[in-house]
């Protein structure tokens, strides 16, 4: 082993670095979806919102020179899509799942359409914070370059926890999600709450998309998302509708995603398709191990209807 290589030590380092680098979009999208679902609606369309946010964020960062303006634009694009979803689903008998899937098509279409001229240019990226100053090992320093949005994501998970469980608005949101009748009896504006919750979800999903295009991997392309938006929605179920769990699930998913390339890096060169599937296998294994015969939707908000 020569001086610049740290051999097998890269494995834990890659998983840690991967957890930090890869997880951020999952954190934002899953917590966004969690807020929406807590209101009793499901927005399956966040994959489209994510792509739209990634494109809009990159475009605005490129045109304005400010990546943070890009993040804002991504959030606003997501909010607009959330508003569309929220309004349409307020029409009686409209199926929220179906609208969500349609919005994947529309969002992806718009992102691809307007994103064509953005594939080649290089937009200013989000800065990262170097936390590895204490180490002289370049690999450690690199793994400790953390994007600010990652910290925002962690704070967000706790803030949403507090919001849901300790504030009056949080109670209102949960009530609307658990029982429409109870919410109406209490005089809560059910539709307004749901629309706002969907907009909030869209806002966060848009930001999650901007992380992909502006931080890691850090450029806009049509192949940018490998289903992160869909997977993040599924992680909400995995997290049993708890924001801290969603944070943990996202970190786990990101870390496991780094396993495949990292193993090839240390010389485990076979079976890479299976190692690359580690996040999915691990998540499934944890679900099988941690659940019991309890109903699969035991912790779900009462008004949430995935099927129909």
């Amino acid at each position: 082993m020569d001086v610049t290589s740290i051999g097998w030590l890269t494995l834990p380092l890659a998983i840690l670095g991967g957890a930090i680098r890869v997880s951020t979009p999952f954190i934002f999208v899953s917590i966004g979806e969690l807020i929406t679902e807590k209101s009793g609606r499901i927005n399956l369309g966040l994959e489209g919102t994510l792509m739209l946010g990634a494109m809009a964020g990159y475009g605005v960062s490129y045109l304005s020179g400010s990546p943070w303006l890009g993040v804002l634009a991504a959030g606003l694009a997501g909010t607009a899509f959330g508003l569309v979803h929220g309004l349409l689903c307020s029409v009686k008998r409209v199926n929220d799942t179906a609208i969500g899937i349609s919005l994947i098509v529309l969002g992806t279409g718009l992102a691809f359409f307007f994103g064509k001229p953005l594939i080649e240019p290089k937009a200013p990226a989000l800065p990262s914070i170097s936390l590895g100053f204490w180490s002289s090992v370049p690999q450690v320093r690199a793994a400790s370059d953390v994007n600010a949005l990652f910290f925002v994501g962690i704070l967000l998970a706790f803030a949403v926890y507090v919001f849901l469980n300790r504030t009056g608005w949080g109670l209102m949101l949960r009530t609307v999600g658990d029982s429409e009748d109870a919410a109406r009896a209490l005089g809560f504006p059910v539709l307004r709450v749901r629309i706002l919750a969907t907009m909030a979800g869209g806002f966060l999903a848009g930001i999650g998309g901007s992380f992909l295009s502006l931080s890691y991997p850090g450029s806009w392309s049509e192949g940018l998302s490998s289903g992160q938006g869909i997977m993040a929605v599924a992680l909400v179920i995995f997290a049993r509708w708890r924001s801290i769990n969603a944070l943990g699930a996202s970190l786990l998913f990101g870390g496991a995603g780094a396993l495949g390339p990292a193993l090839q890096g240390v010389g485990v060169t076979g079976y890479y398709y299976l190692f690359n599937a580690a996040p999915y296998i691990l998540t499934l294994a944890i679900m099988v191990a941690s659940t019991s015969r309890a109903a699969p939707f035991a912790d779900a908000p009462g008004e949430l209807k995935l099927h129909r």
Partner: peptide, 25 residues
């Protein structure tokens, strides 16, 4: 570009879903 038709599809799906819901109502 190929994405043009995705945009049209998305618009049609959304509109048809809402119209279908109203019709059902």
């Amino acid at each position: 570009p190929d994405a043009t038709m995705l945009v049209f599809q998305g618009l049609i799906f959304v509109c048809v879903l809402v119209a279908d819901a109203i019709a059902q109502q």
